[in-house]
């Protein structure tokens, strides 16, 4: 009797999970086919098959420019977020769960505050400034958003690295700096790569702060947003599809690195 009930509830659980997955995936499954449509407007189901909207994307300097800004800002944000996150993780290493939770909670603050409020605040502060300052501000804001991901990725791997490994390096004759550079960092390198990839895409996907802060500069999400409000051409679908593909690939690559980072230290 119980086994039948358990089997039933387990089936319900699977069904529920499948529905949630479907709900999350439907927009993707709609967008990607639309990008191949031959029509001049967004059509579902797509009519015919064409790569011309991908071609249009790469021939339009506005799209390419937006892609360039997105990549540039994302790289800079990740370059800020990863070292900052590693510092935070080094501080939290081997500390009690309470301290870790408080600090991680504080870091998550930027994520919990509605981004629109954050974006509005940043806009009000940066409004009088032009030139490169907004770029710096957006980069730092994105790095802040990525910080908790970096800490959450690096900290467990760092905790898994036995301190005696670094002590052994010292006894081999390494100064603290040499031990950190030649032993600690390389030992956790896969986690750093994973953290970098995640940070990159936290920034790459972000719309609100970039939209509010930049006056003339467009990042890819800003460009998509602008396009949606003006003319709904399948170029949007093409751009979005590429964004989806890149993000998916990044998540897989990042996760693979994190798994590798842990497994290498697992059997100490």
């Amino acid at each position: 009797m119980t086994t039948i009930r358990e089997a039933g509830s387990s089936r319900m659980l699977h069904l529920g999970f499948a529905l949630i997955l479907l709900f999350l995936l439907v927009p993707l499954l709609v967008i990607i086919p639309m990008s191949f449509s031959e029509t001049r407007y967004l059509a579902f189901p797509p009519v015919g098959f064409s790569l011309k909207w991908y071609g249009a994307f790469f021939q339009n300097p506005r799209w390419i420019g937006a892609l360039g800004w997105s990549v540039g800002v994302a790289i800079c944000a990740a370059l800020v977020a990863v070292p900052a996150g590693v510092c935070a993780a080094l501080y939290l290493r081997h500390r009690s769960g309470a301290v870790v939770n408080v600090v991680l909670g504080a870091l998550l603050g930027a994520q919990i505050v509605p981004t629109i409020i954050l974006a509005l605040g940043i806009r009000l502060v940066t409004a009088p400034f032009t030139g490169s300052l907004p770029v710096v501000v957006v980069t730092l804001a994105h790095a802040t958003l990525a910080l908790p991901f970096v800490v959450a990725t690096v900290l467990p791997v760092l905790n898994k690295l036995d301190v005696s490994v670094e002590k052994a390096a010292r006894m081999c004759g390494a100064t603290p700096v040499q031990a950190f550079r030649h032993i600690t960092i390389p030992a956790i390198r896969p986690a750093l790569v994973g953290a970098f990839v995640f940070s990159f895409f936290v920034s790459f996907d972000e719309l609100m702060i970039a939209l509010f802060t930049f006056q003339t500069i467009e990042t890819l999400p800003v460009r998509i947003w602008g396009e949606v409000r003006q003319e709904l051409t399948p170029v949007i679908a093409a751009a979005t599809s590429m964004l989806i593909a890149a993000t998916t690939a990044a998540v897989i690559v990042g996760q693979a690195h994190i798994v590798r980072a842990s497994s290498r230290l697992a059997d100490k």
């Binding site: 036995d162 005696s164 490994v165 006894m171 230290l265």
Partner: peptide, 15 residues
């Protein structure tokens, strides 16, 4: 200039 062997082996995992 002292050598040391630790309980947990403490080998450098990436080397």
């Amino acid at each position: 200039e002292i050598g040391m062997v630790f309980q947990g082996y403490s080998l450098f995992p990436h080397m």
